[in-house]
Write a protein that binds this DNA or RNA. Structure first.
Lengths: 206, 206
DNA sequence: GTCTATACTAGGATAGAC
DNA sequence: GTCTATCCTAGTATAGAC
């Protein structure tokens, strides 16, 4: 141990480092949303960030770790978003707000798609404590609202809560948004409301 | 032109050829459902069929053509299924029957996932007449039922028909089924009914 | 920690004999 | 039309100088 006391604030150099890493992760997040893990190449990431590929590997030991960092980031953003919700709203409204936010993130091109079952990314994520902890925290929060909403009859009580949870996650990455946006006939706000409507109210008329 | 008249029936050799190609396409279809286009390798296909990779390329000029053949096949199966529906049912019931069938196909591991926006497969499909024609035919059929169902108030008339159509296509590949199946808590029949319910009736209680 | 240059591998596609 | 053997590109990862 050094006798010199460490500085209370991170050094300028460390701040630069962290800023660079944040820029990298942000780029990866966007590319994951655009093309998915397999189609995204490390060359591409390096070019977009504006550094050499070898430099990337000084920050992250593999492509999987690179992507995992972006996945941790989006889960963290989700947790932050949940924490910022007004605590006194009805559970069903909390859930609608969460889904609305996720749809907006997706339309902004910032929502990485769900890693497919046998992707090497899936294995990396399931071994990543930072990711798993956040995923569980988010799921617990949503699960609480789901059960509360079912108890007060705002969500169909015949549905297993886990099925509702999966449905919400899936809607956050729903390809329908991409299709509707490509059609170009509706504004982003309208697309969000359409998908929200089909998710909570279904296709059938009430 | 030969003076000899061609045989009215395809030769034994031609039948063998077609049978082999059908076996190939069936294998490709299964692998596309399991892993998707990018993760599926041609080596894998060849091994599963039990022939050399070079032989595959005698039948199909590229990996994209291989996959396209499987996509044409699933669209053809869809058309056949539509043709077999009783003509006198209500439009909403026709739509429910189609989605139920698609969900069953997915649970059977025979539904290739939607090709993502920038996949090389997408380009190949959009240049493939056999695929496009079938896609359009199916979409027209479904579109007719959607509008009829809206006219009689069985589907929410506030939804643009195209949004309903995209939603139905997306549900046919919904990752929720995979998740619920992996959970192992529900039978296949129950999973189908759950997803059908969330699709048509939504999450909110009636 | 950044770079240039390179090693290594997976995977799509082809040559050429039979 | 099937095979074995090979080519070639793309893409992950690393070496080594500064």
């Amino acid at each position: 141990m050094s006798v010199i006391a460490p500085p209370a604030k991170p050094s300028f150099k460390a701040q630069m480092l962290q800023a660079r890493e944040e820029a990298i992760v942000q780029t990866v997040n966007r590319l994951l949303a655009e093309k998915g893990f397999d189609a995204m190449t490390v060359d591409e990431v390096a070019a977009a960030v504006g550094i050499a590929k070898a430099s990337l590997y000084k920050h992250f030991p593999s492509k999987e770790d690179l992507a995992a960092a972006a996945m941790v980031r989006i889960m963290q953003r989700t947790q932050d978003m949940l924490a910022a919700l007004p605590a006194d709203a009805r559970p069903i409204d909390q859930l609608r707000a969460v889904v609305r936010w996720a749809l907006q993130v997706q339309l902004a091109g910032e929502m990485p798609s769900l890693p497919s079952q046998n992707s090497s990314l899936r294995a990396a994520l399931m071994a990543n404590r930072g990711y798993l902890d956040r995923l569980i925290a988010v799921s617990d929060r949503l699960g609480g609202w789901i059960q509360a909403a079912q108890a007060e009859g705002a969500i169909n009580p015949a549905l297993p809560p886990i099925a509702v949870l999966y449905t919400l996650y899936a809607r956050a990455c729903d390809p329908v948004l991409e299709f509707l946006k490509a059609g170009g006939q509706h504004s982003d706000e309208r697309i969000v409301e359409l998908v929200l409507s089909t998710c909570f109210d279904g296709l059938a008329a009430r």
